[in-house]
Design a binder for these strands. Structure first.
Lengths: 351, 351
DNA sequence: GCTGGCACTCTGTCCGCTTGAGTGCTAGCG
DNA sequence: CGCTAGCACTCAAGCGGACAGAGTGCCAGC
């Protein structure tokens, strides 16, 4: 038998593995040799299939929940399926439409929020959208608005169209005029620099100020430093947690509870998504392939979004290992592209 | 026997009802005459208690899940308990501390968010914090920041310290100078008016503009009207939904699912909370006392927060009808007062 | 190399039994 | 007149055995 480079499985075993995984993803029940034989895709008796299945089990692609049950895919089985056997379904026009509608809107927060909700709805899984604190993003403008004495709202607009705002406490008192001047100064002086670079320059300016004893400059520096140091949190939208209520794998209260709590531990998720940011294409993490997914038996299908030059964040879905990867993959892919397109558009319409 | 004005129950029946409800709230199991007799608070035999219980059932305060089970409080039973029998527990210093910490922070959104999380944690119920779109709130300043061509972020600061911001699409192009001027103009011209009043004045200004053909005025009016008409959503924080996973009343998947979905229907909740805004003191809604709580067998314990002159929103908890009202009431009360104090402070520190 | 047959295993379900908690009613006691 | 003890009845929940069904491994035969 010819063996392919990417695997040591003969074609028949591959077909059997594919069929088992497809059926298992569909039904959630262990697949036995009889069911498999009766499905009509193989001109083989159950006994022969049993041999094939025993081989697949030995290779670590399948497992038995207990002695006299059918077979269930292992993490490795899913991985092989995704890498070599899966045929992605193409999206329906309905799905495309809904995604396109989902990314309409002008405020980026809204768009991301909608995106994750749309994703959750279409996938019937938990939708994720992650936007890290981009301390390295380039600033287009920075403005300051007085909210109360010693409380000022900072509004930073990035060249990528992202707007962040945060109320900070300040030592000095500022008049409306002060704030306008400072905003104009910082914007003109530091536009297209990153927050980090701005911070460094501001610190360097401190010396200059010391020499000149310029009160206005002092206030500007103080406010600017406070502004760049404000704790701009990353955004993580986790939408549609209720979708897991349907999944048979979480039918017992204990695992349901565990799963819910896991989804609330956003730090872990952020950590994971942050490492994923490095990779370019669609990423699929299955169960044991990362700490977070291992302890919860999750799988994650995610992809970077944003312009290729400057990725903005991650978008994806999270759910039980048994999920329709063939449908999830194009969904996430399409949404991520739609989001990226949207963001590039915004960049281009900018003055 | 002397009967009190507020009820036609003799003291013994009241004691029995109180005890049954307290025990039921604690255990979640129907209370039988034997258990009640053995608890030591009554010098009566089970048989006598049965008579009392039968009376209470006839009056509609108790019910039996099935023929040979103990008694369970009805909505009416809870209502009577809350109105006449309950003795509110006072908060522990730990609880006070945690609440006080929870309302620390400067940005009102953060504070509210924290408040609802704190409430959920302390109550082990779902925490609610609602801040309606206050179209009737008085504006202190209004500013405009360019985000992109034809996309402008509006920042409105209220006299009550609330900050709302929204990106809107505009017909005209605005320079930074334009925006500063318009902001200054609107702020000085319309400060301390409500959004609604500002809208009316702007519309009146339209005629003036028609006469003068003042391009700047035209832009100002256009931007101002867009700004006041922007859809400022109400904020509703529903925190700690996972707390219901512990409650035995939601142990079966079906009711769990129903409950989760109900909590996601925020419009219904908003509607309910909006009507509650009218009332001043602590409000407790039990099961059948409102549509929303009826269909889900919820109870809501909530109270208005904000200065007495201008209430800002509602804060409270939502959970199964069987909850520790005696603990929830002071919790919600204290948090609402803490929030109100916080907000009044902010108002006073304002220039 | 495939297949039919066979013995074996494990799970889930159904059924009937028992147990325990709780009730209502009634008769009797102080 | 109120309280209590006793009794018959009901219902839910838990236990265990029997049974059916699905699946397996292995072996002999084509």
């Amino acid at each position: 038998m010819a063996t392919r480079l990417d695997s040591d499985l003969d074609p028949r075993a591959r077909d059997v593995l594919r069929e088992i995984i497809i059926q298992y993803i569909d039904s959630g029940e262990p697949i036995g040799s009889r069911t498999l034989s009766k499905c009509g895709r193989f001109p083989l008796s159950p006994a022969s299939l049993r041999n094939v299945m025993a081989d697949l089990e030995e290779l670590g692609f399948l497992a038995q929940p207990h002695t006299s049950a059918g077979r269930v895919p292992t993490d490795r089985g899913y991985r092989f399926f995704i890498d070599h056997l899966m045929r992605s379904r193409s999206l329906t026009s309905r799905e495309r439409e809904e995604i396109d509608e989902g990314v309409a809107g002008s405020e980026i927060d809204d768009v991301l929020h909608h995106a994750s909700a749309t994703l959750s709805k279409l996938s019937d899984q938990v939708g994720l959208v992650f936007m890290p604190t981009l301390l390295q993003f380039a600033v287009r403008s920075m403005d300051f608005i007085s909210v109360a004495d010693h409380r000022i709202m900072v509004v930073i607009v990035g060249t990528n169209g992202v707007v962040v705002n945060k109320v900070i406490e300040t030592r000095f008192l500022f008049t409306r005029d002060d704030l306008e001047k400072i905003g104009r100064y910082i914007t003109s002086e530091f536009a297209s620099l990153t927050l980090d670079a701005i911070r460094r320059r501001l610190i360097r300016l401190t010396e200059q100020e010391r020499a000149q004893h310029d009160a206005m400059l002092q206030k500007t520096i103080a406010l600017g430093i406070d502004a760049v140091n404000a704790p701009y949190e990353h955004d993580l939208y986790v939408e549609g947690a209720s979708s897991i209520l349907n999944k048979p794998e979480y039918s017992d209260p204990a695992s349901l509870r565990k799963t819910f709590l896991a989804l609330q531990e956003k730090e872990k998720l952020v950590e994971l998504l942050e490492t994923c940011l490095a990779e370019e294409g669609l990423q699929i993490l299955i169960g044991s392939e990362s700490d977070f997914t291992q302890i919860n038996n999750f799988s994650i299908v995610a992809r970077r979004y944003g312009s290729t030059s400057a990725p903005l964040g991650m978008v994806g879905i999270i759910g039980p290992m048994r999920m329709e990867y063939a449908r999830m993959a194009p969904l996430v892919e399409y949404l991520s592209r739609a989001l990226s397109r949207k963001i590039e558009e915004q960049e281009h319409t900018d003055g």
